[in-house]
Amino acid sequence: MSSDPVLDSQSDETLLAAYARGERDAARILSRRLLPRVLGQAHRMLGDRAEAEDVAQEAMLRLWRIAPDWEADRAKVTTWLYRVVANLCTDRLRKSGRAVALEAAPEPEDTGPTVAAGLQDRARHMALRAALADLPDRQAKAVTLRHLEELPNPEVARIMGESVRTVESLVARGKKGLIARLRGRKAELGYDDDG
């Protein structure tokens, strides 16, 4: 696919403004640039490819809709998208219920070194998903942004609209809460207590 080197070099915010003026190519470049991150964040939080794609599409749709009203100095597009994806994912986690049955989980993808390893990864991810669904929303968002997306606390604070101190507290409580919920499933998840 051909690309416009001038558009390619523009910032996300400039491209969004160009899209708002009717430049379709700007939307395509933004999609190619942002979709991997958006989809990855959703996939890590939800553990399910199809659900993650739905969230990614919805997040991008919201971006297209806000484009005409985007204020250049408001925030970075990526910061805004992190927030939207985190919100959409926690909504889904909440709706899917606190108990996520492994039987209901999708089949593992053929990415693991072995089928057994793939099943174990799947079990771990579904356990994480269930634990996240059981956490208070803000803790779930804070702990996933900090530990799954590996963002620094100040960036998490910007995304969540909280102070850094509050984020530190949310992350600590979220981590503690996750451990408490995972602890009882160690053997099931393939963790050796003696190791």
Binding site: G40, H43, R44, A52, D121, L128, L148, L178, K186, L189
Partner: peptide
């Protein structure tokens, strides 16, 4: 336990 679970999730990358 926390680190191993989180690392499992981190490995999940998804190319659109």
């Amino acid at each position: 336990l926390f680190r191993a679970t989180v690392e499992t999730a981190r490995r999940r990358t998804a190319e659109p």
